[in-house]
Each structure stands twice: as C-alpha cells, then as structure tokens.
C-alpha cells in the first residue's frame, strides 16, 4: 500500500506493508537514520519524532497510520550546517556521550520549549520522562535544556528589538 506524508517539510510517498512502522520508513526508505531504534517497544524514546508537532515513538506507529501527517525528524532541525540552538546547547553543555539517545531527547526538548519557553526543572523532567540515556545520567541533559531555553529567549528578545 502507498502512504503519503510530509517529512521535514518535504512531501514523500512510500510503498509499505501493513506491518511497516514509521521508524522503518524513515530509516530504510528515506535514509533518515538520525532516528534510532533502541528498545522497539516504546520504553526508551530513541526513535522519538514529531507527529503533527507532538513527540511520539516512531516504533509504535504504523506507517499507514500517518497518511497525510506532518513528521519532523532530527534531520529537520538544523539550518544547513548551522545546528539548531537546542542541538548547539546539547553540544555546549556536554549533554552528549555516545549520542544514540540524543536525537530523541532533542526532539522532546523542541516540543517542550515550543509549548513552554521557560520550563521549571519539574517541567523539564516531565517532558523528558520518555527518553532514556544510558551514558551520561541526566544532569547535563537538563543543563542543556536550561541553556537552550535561555538562548532561545535571548534570540527572541533580539528579534523583537
């Protein structure tokens, strides 16, 4: 069966089976390998993408369920060679170790800061509860979120001025 949807603003069509997951289409057909498969059962969040703006586990979504939807993957955030401020904050805060969980974390943070530009620590932890990191612990990741929130707020002030 054919499925049509948008990925990072680009319209795509893919030929899929009923069993094909969104994760499989992204990685195998569209070669968007920034989306990672960790547990494959919705526990780890490594496969997080934005579906119509909301974080979901792409391992728990069938490709055919997203007909007409708008998907954003980690590849959709950077502006050419310039990292998105959230990505840059992860680098600067040292919130990346092996990096496998990072794309999922960054997309969860993207949705958080869009809806809640100045989150409390509690709100940060709640937004990241579905993403696991097995290297760093979470202190530097939370630092990165705070740093990204601060920089995005500064950028908004500059833009307004």
């Amino acid at each position: 069966m054919k499925v049509r949807f948008a990925v990072n603003g680009r319209a795509v069509t893919a030929e899929v089976d009923a069993e094909t997951r969104l994760l499989d289409v992204l990685r195998e057909d569209l070669h968007l390998t920034g989306t990672k498969e960790g547990c494959g059962e919705g526990e780890c969040g490594a496969c997080t993408v934005l579906l119509d703006g909301r974080p979901v586990n792409s391992c728990l979504v069938l490709a055919l369920q997203i007909e007409g939807a708008d998907i954003v993957t980690i590849e959709g955030l950077a502006d050419g060679p310039r990292l998105h401020p959230i990505q840059q904050a992860f680098v600067d805060a040292g919130a990346v170790q092996c990096g496998f969980c990072t794309p999922g974390f960054v997309l969860s943070v993207y949705a958080l800061l869009r809806d809640c530009p100045a989150p409390s620590d509690e709100e940060i932890l709640m937004a990241l509860e579905g993403n696991l990191c097995r290297c760093t612990g979470y202190a530097k990741i939370v630092d990165a979120v705070r740093l990204a929130a601060k920089r995005l707020a500064e950028a908004r002030v500059q833009e307004a001025a």
Binding site: G42, P55, V56, L60, S108, A111, M126, A127, E129, G130
Partner: peptide
C-alpha cells in the same frame, strides 16, 4: 501514565 510519547498516542 506512560510518558509524553505514550500519552500522545
């Protein structure tokens, strides 16, 4: 219940 990703689906 679950987490953000699970509650969204």
């Amino acid at each position: 219940l679950g987490c953000v990703q699970i509650r969204n689906r």
